[in-house]
Design a protein around this nucleic acid. Sequence first.
DNA 1: GTGAAAGCGCTAACAC
DNA 2: GTGTTAGCGCTTTCAC
Lengths: 350, 350
Amino acid sequence: MVESKSTLADIAKLAKVSVKTASRVVRQEPNVSPKTRAAVEKAMKILKYRPSLAPRAAVGTRSYLLGLIFDNPNPSYIVDLLRGALDQTRKEGYHLIVEPVMASSPTVMEDITSLLVQSNVDGMLLPPPLCDEPIILEALRASGKPFARIAPSVSTDVGLHVEMNDFEAARQMTQTLIALAHTSVGFVTGRRGTVTTKRRLSGFLSAMRDANLTVPDRFIVEGTFEYRSGLVAGEALLRHAERPTAIFASNDGMAAGLIAAAHKFSLSVPDDVSIAGFDDSVVATVVWPPLTTVRQPIKEMAAAAVRMLIEQLRGRLDPASSTRELPFELMIRASTTSIATRTKIKAVPT
Amino acid sequence: MVESKSTLADIAKLAKVSVKTASRVVRQEPNVSPKTRAAVEKAMKILKYRPSLAPRAAVGTRSYLLGLIFDNPNPSYIVDLLRGALDQTRKEGYHLIVEPVMASSPTVMEDITSLLVQSNVDGMLLPPPLCDEPIILEALRASGKPFARIAPSVSTDVGLHVEMNDFEAARQMTQTLIALAHTSVGFVTGRRGTVTTKRRLSGFLSAMRDANLTVPDRFIVEGTFEYRSGLVAGEALLRHAERPTAIFASNDGMAAGLIAAAHKFSLSVPDDVSIAGFDDSVVATVVWPPLTTVRQPIKEMAAAAVRMLIEQLRGRLDPASSTRELPFELMIRASTTSIATRTKIKAVPT
DNA sequence: GTGAAAGCGCTAACAC
DNA sequence: GTGTTAGCGCTTTCAC
């Protein structure tokens, strides 16, 4: 089924042309007569020719390899990223070398150099949080290889990048809660210091302000993006009698923690308290009730990053810096409900 | 920081030896005097030499690339797999090319050949369910490249493989439930037809039989490994007054569904019904209460598969077939509790 | 123990 | 339009 690989020389011989001409056809270069082209293409088909990547890389031009390094504890995020990147690399005739890297590890530079030099990748994909590591950015810039950053939080002037509008997403989700007649809404922030955290909080506050709703200080609780911090935040918010009727967490993990906290206090979600998350990770549909959340277009972002990278490799993109913004989506599920509905049930029917 | 790569010729010159001798040292071959070896190693250090992978592959011997194809909807499974494989490949000086493949797609063979021929991988890693596809196994066997199968369900006589003892794991988990004084235990199977499904069910039944406990037919419900099927199974099992006091699901996703079903019927987990899962996926610690489950050593299995593959490439392993079994672990969490405890609480204290 | 030469499959430079 | 030549950085003969 998989026969011994044929070489460029083989098809050149069969098509009765020189190796170079054969190469021209394979690489879709111009300056080949339609007739020779056809002949070579026929030979390629007969011999099931597939150019070997290694010699191409050896000769120093292109390796047709892209590097993806990651340091992210969230499996569904990684998998989405991977799928998006892989789909696109394959479409473009590239391959992906994956490497887990720990930003804190003393061997970060080693690991990256290994990809850059040993495997000779043509470009690099940098998902968060690695895309914000100054040391990595610096190394990559120094190497001269192009790289695309996915949802970066800092120095958005370096390299290509793909993002989504965190502010707008948080604003719209908050508006959705307000539309459900919630007036006292709590918020759990992400890890302090990240731009994502800041933007999502701003979006929330902006929507509340626009609706002339006040947010008591103690309704805004700092989290870390971890499940546990959501649980703790939920306990803090729901302990008091004057608790919010809805809580918006900066990611799904923390929202799952909020649900657990509600259960602990024997509060029903969404009847006693509506919960919204952010990311639409697997967690969102595995908890009960399923989570209303913001779908980050992770797959699409990864694919777009690959596309930009390859465009740049082909010289079709400004090498300095270029951005692309992908659209998010609000996923309304069972963890949120209208206050009106709720009161109707508990009140005497009219 | 990342300097222009040095070549073998560079270090040969610096160490005042021939290129071949330099190569010998780099590749740790014998027949080099300790003195020359030291000199070359020094030169390598000074020039920060890193052998480029491409020419090695070009010359047709080794590409130092392993291929990992996957077709699995479970993100945490993939990530664990990836981490295990990557850790080990790196340790061995190899790299990993990852490719998502859909067994049902008409381009499966294309995709695999692409890895085999274009990228010239030295070997392949086959996780489930791809490792059970006859067409893929056949193609791989025909290619002559070594491959390692992870937790295969069928034709366990082809290629290297790594597994865990599903039967024993299910048996021990069931024994744990029995030890908690549960006598009426329900079971949700996996997708029909897979060996995994069969083995886990056998383990369950074996433990019940050994304890002289009978299992009514309707306590065994067929699932599909999906969350939804767990929910449905839970509704079927818990609807009746004579319901099991514990339910063991063949994976965590379905166990999460069981919990959701219990909530629907206002049953408390674990006080009214204990729930156990299988896999220890992320889901297990994100649901409430956290799930008692069997930890599959996925990372370790992937690492072991890589190790076996590389051993075979080095000729240190029987090329025909070789197996390795990794140990599982019972993770006892809050979703299971003793019947005794439960009754104690509800009964008058002695 | 060590090295010179040949060549992997491809691409680049420069002819024709 | 097409072919020739000379490499890429490494590994493999097979000498010495």
